[in-house]
Nucleic acid binder design. Structure first.
Lengths: 200, 200, 200, 200
DNA sequence: CATGAATGAGAATTCATTCAT
DNA sequence: AATGAATGAATTCTCATTCAT
């Protein structure tokens, strides 16, 4: 597998994402994908080893694309909180622009398929954010909490709001988004009031 | 006339949940379920109209059970923040005790199947939390933000931590959980420091 | 089997005939019949041994009813041609009144199921007609041809016209029917013009 | 790319016809057909959309083949009665040679499936006979009756005799067939004796 | 590289029938 | 007698994948 015609490969990916988003992983068959992509079923097997591989590649390439788009071009000399808000803002806006990608990622990563992907492969996509966290902890500007906790109160709430946006339940204005970013930052930034249990 | 066998229905549900957790929605077939539940495939169709209905009923009954378990028995005369923390703590602990239920809900609600369920049917499960939010907003103890925003910074981060727990990436100690609940509360409680965009 | 409640038995028969006429033998299941007859599937097996038996009994009882209705009450002292025309007219009118019965008979008798029914069982239903033919042959009023041939040019054309009527393609007026009966009679009545091959 | 294998399609058709003749429309399953045709069940669905389509195509192609075989090559310059007898004779002999086709047609056209076929599609197969009728009516050689009536006293009696032949109840000698054709012709030919109701 | 044909395995669902009450 | 529950076997049809061109 892995051949030339990028147009065809792209068509296969687009068809897959669209179908999976609309019908679900279980209701999307290789022949449906083939039909919608205007290729023969056999052609898919030139570009991907099998269905599992197709889905995995899709997941990885969407992650990669999102990560690239979100984490490139932000100036690391900015104050930590600014950098942090820039990243979250870009993430929010990126997924608003690419709802199909967002939905696909959610579906895939909440299914057992996700276990077939090595942790490291994913972890890397968050690296810049983790670096930011590390810097913040060193500078005593961010609470001394594990990355997962910090993500849970910053990145994931934002992702949840993307979901609300896409379902139409809550569409943030620009100013509201900015306030939200402040909320996210406040929830992890270190301050004078000391918590009872966590030594921050 | 033979009476309907609740044992059988229960076996079907349990088998479904188990298989779906292990193999995924897409890889779980009616005959696999039947086999694991020790009934005939045809028997499933006595209790559920079809596969879609089976999954939907599972989703609703798991939601209901979780909601009941989490939202019953908390004393409403307690201070708002206490009530709030009790609910989140119970939610966290409930899903820790019922990982299969948690995983099922995540998988189902991130698939297109979720769109077949009326909004109202779901919304109700959160009602006590929404009531709390409403009270808090009236009392000026909670920021004047829409429910979705409040959930995004309280309930969903906690759910994210359940996920981390179950994947083994981050298992909170009791004291850490308590600190986390404080974090959640702090993120939505109204305070003297006035944000730039939100008038709280 | 064979029990009491005639209402139930009648309901089962009526439902069967209706469904088979509308959906076809292949598309009619015992549970559909049960549902339409407002009884339990198990109940059908009290009245009939199994599906094959149900169909067979239906066929026989419809044949019997038709035969009874057509062949009773015609006066045998009438001239042969009058008797003959009376019978055909009654047959035509009977099936016009009972389209469901007609359609069922056609469907059943043109399927391999018919082979499960002994020839004698059916033959009897035509007996009065056969007697008429025999008398006619003896009296030299009817061509000396086998019963099957005589039926083919009298009874079956009339049945074909019933079919046309029911499909809406050709609905005979009363006078047209009478003319048709004359045609039928002419085709088998003996006359002076002698055929080349058959000695009539 | 593999080309479609006409041998396979033919095998599927032959197997279908054979099974339907022996077991009946209702008792013939796609897998039985596949097995007897020595193909995979899935292969049938390459050539036919579904079971209903398979049966419909079978019906149409058998009708077409019969029609072609019966109605080609008869000389239209012959006297009307000769032409007419030629056609009926060919029909009789054709179906005697192809009992499976005859039985299939009878079974299909007496089931509700027939209603899924447009009238026009069928009507065409009889066209040459209808033309003959039209000519005969114009020439005042045939009674002035609708096509359906004429068919009922000519074509269908002959078909009924085919049925008798195949069931073994009455096998006509050649000379008997000829006499029968005369009967058919006489029943529709116009003559001096004027009927009471029909103005012929 | 690309294809439509081909397929065995398996999907969801229904079947005719029997069971337990 | 009558029922709805229960079922193993069978139904139609689709699946992921490979084959032959």
């Amino acid at each position: 597998m892995r051949a030339r015609d990028l147009k065809k490969e792209e068509a296969i990916c687009a068809a897959s994402i669209d179908l999976i988003n609309r019908k679900g992983l279980s209701e999307t068959s290789m022949s449906q994908i083939a039909k919608q992509a205007n290729v023969s079923p056999a052609t898919i097997y030139i570009y991907f080893k099998n269905k599992e591989d197709l889905l995995k590649q899709l997941y990885l390439r969407i992650q990669r694309e999102a990560s690239t788009s979100i984490f490139t071009g932000y100036e690391s000399f900015l104050p930590l909180d600014e950098s942090f808000k820039i990243l979250l803002r870009k993430a929010y806006q990126y997924f608003l622009r690419k709802p199909e990608h967002f939905i696909f990622l959610e579906q895939y990563s909440n299914s057992p398929l996700i276990s077939k992907i090595g942790d490291d492969q994913i972890q890397n996509y968050f690296e810049p954010l983790f670096n930011l966290f590390a810097r913040g902890r060193q500078n005593k500007m961010i609470k001394d909490l594990p990355d997962e906790m910090l993500l849970s109160f910053t990145f994931y709430p934002i992702m949840q709001l993307v979901k609300y946006h896409q379902s139409g339940k809550l569409r943030l204005q620009y100013s509201e988004l900015e306030a939200t970013l402040v909320m996210a930052w406040n929830s992890i930034k270190r301050d004078r009031e000391v918590g009872k249990f966590i030594n921050n």
